[in-house]
């Protein structure tokens, strides 16, 4: 008896529930329509600015420590990551990200932001299960696919010894 009434009860609600497809179409009509052009312009300006700052840091390392541009690459990335983590800690990076979209997500600073914000957010769940386990929640996919892609490239080069070996020094 109880089963039957529960069944009829759920039947009463049926018009409200939607299939995943219907919901997607419905949600699309309710999405705020932000112009793709505006978003792209913001992404271009912010992303370009971050890269220009990176260029400045790289120039500084080249001048101060007498490095080549390739040697200066790693410390430049490390400094940008440090800056991104500091800005994330102060809650500034997320404000930039709301406006800039991909402009703040695509540079390496966005990678650092995703790691540090996940670490800070899950701090309350503990140092190991919270910070340790969640740090790579978003950044992990980047590392997994990057490593798999690099592995495939490496195996292809190893098997076929592709002749046009480009310069991998430095």
């Amino acid at each position: 008896m109880a089963v039957k009434s529960a069944g009829s009860g759920s039947k009463g609600y049926k018009p409200v529930s939607m299939s995943a497809k219907e919901y997607k179409a419905f949600a699309q009509t309710k999405e705020p329509s932000r112009s793709v052009w505006t978003n792209c312009l913001r992404a271009f300006l912010v992303g370009g600015l971050i890269c220009a700052i990176g260029q400045g840091i790289q120039k500084f390392f080249m001048a101060a420590f007498d490095m080549t541009s390739k040697q200066a690459g790693n410390p430049t990335v490390a400094v940008l990551i440090l800056l991104a983590v500091i800005l994330t800690s102060m809650g500034v990076y997320d404000k930039i990200a709301q406006c800039a979209g991909a402009g703040s997500a695509v540079p390496v600073t966005g990678f650092a932001n995703s790691m540090s914000s996940a670490a800070i957010e899950h701090r309350s769940e503990g140092l190991v299960l919270g910070v340790g386990a969640n740090m790579f929640k978003l950044a992990g996919s980047v590392i997994v696919y990057g490593v798999v892609a690099a592995f495939i490239v490496g195996v292809v080069y190893w098997l076929f010894g592709i002749g046009a070996w480009h310069d991998t020094t430095g």
Partner: peptide, 15 residues
């Protein structure tokens, strides 16, 4: 650096 870096970000924004 600005133009190329910004361009890659625009590609991401289009995605």
């Amino acid at each position: 650096a600005f133009i190329v870096g910004g361009g890659i970000c625009v590609f991401g924004q289009i995605c």
